[in-house]
Amino acid sequence: MRIACPYCGPRENGEFSYLGDATPVRPSLEQGVDAMLDYVFLRDNVAGEMQELWYHGGGCRAWLKVTRNTLTHEISAVEAARGAGAAKVGKR
C-alpha cells in the first residue's frame, strides 16, 4: 500500500502507523462518561470508504486523515489531520 502524504508525496505504508477511525471527536470533560465510552470503545467499523488517522512517523511526523476504502484498500484522499479529533465544545 502507498499513501500519498500531502507533504512528502507517495510513500510506502511501512513509514506510517495506523490509529483508526478519524471521525470520532474527543469529548470534553463536561460531556461525561457515555460520550467518552463511545469515543474510546465503539466503532462504526465501516465496510467501504472510511476516514482514518495515519501517522507518518517514518517521514515528516504529520498525522494524516486518509480516506480509504476498507473493501478495496483504494485511497481517494489524504489530508492533514490537524484538529480532526479536537473537542467541539469547551475551550478552543
Partner: peptide
C-alpha cells in the same frame, strides 16, 4: 497488517 480492512488480503510489509 494493522489497518481496518475487509479485503481479505494484505500487503508486503
Amino acid at each position: 497488517d494493522g489497518y481496518n480492512s475487509y479485503a481479505q488480503r494484505g500487503n508486503m510489509p
